[in-house]
C-alpha cells in the first residue's frame, strides 16, 4: 500500500538516496519478448540493440529479459538472427 497524502514528506522531496532503483518502468508494455532457449545462439545482438539494458546476461550467455524495465519495443525480436525471440501480447 502506497502512502496517503498525510504520510508523505513535505514538498514532494525524496529522503532516501538512490530510491529510483526501485522505480520499475516496464509497466506500460503491451507486448513482452519471450525467449526460445533452444534457438538462441548467444550472439548478443539483442543485448547490443536493446535501448533499455533489459537483456539479462550471465557468464556471457543470454538468459532472458528484465521485465521490470523492458518497454516491449520489439527491437530484440527484430534483430535476432535465429528468430529465438517472439513478442507475446500482454494480457490484463
Amino acid at each position: 500500500m502506497k502512502e496517503t497524502w498525510k504520510e508523505l514528506p513535505i514538498g514532494a522531496i525524496i529522503k532516501e538516496p538512490g530510491s529510483s532503483k526501485r522505480f520499475e518502468t516496464g509497466d506500460w508494455r503491451t507486448e513482452r519478448p519471450v525467449l526460445d532457449p533452444e534457438k538462441c545462439i548467444h550472439c548478443m545482438f539483442c543485448w547490443i540493440y536493446c535501448p533499455d539494458s533489459s537483456i539479462k546476461v550471465e557468464n556471457g550467455k543470454m538468459e532472458g529479459f528484465l521485465y521490470e524495465y523492458c518497454k516491449g519495443c520489439g527491437i530484440c525480436a527484430d534483430v535476432c538472427p535465429t528468430k529465438a525471440i517472439t513478442m507475446v501480447r500482454e494480457e490484463v
Binding site: 502512502e3 497524502w5 508523505l8 513535505i10 514532494a12 522531496i13 525524496i14 529522503k15 538516496p17 530510491s19
Partner: peptide, 29 residues
C-alpha cells in the same frame, strides 16, 4: 526551512518526476 538541500548528512532529492501514483497526493498535501 521545510528541508535543507545542503544538509549532507540527510541527503534529499527535490523536484523529481512525480507521476500518476504520487502527484495527486502531493497536490492534496
Amino acid at each position: 526551512s521545510p528541508y535543507n538541500l545542503l544538509d549532507i548528512y540527510n541527503p534529499i532529492t527535490i523536484g523529481p518526476l512525480d507521476l500518476q501514483d504520487y502527484f495527486f497526493e502531493h497536490k492534496r498535501q
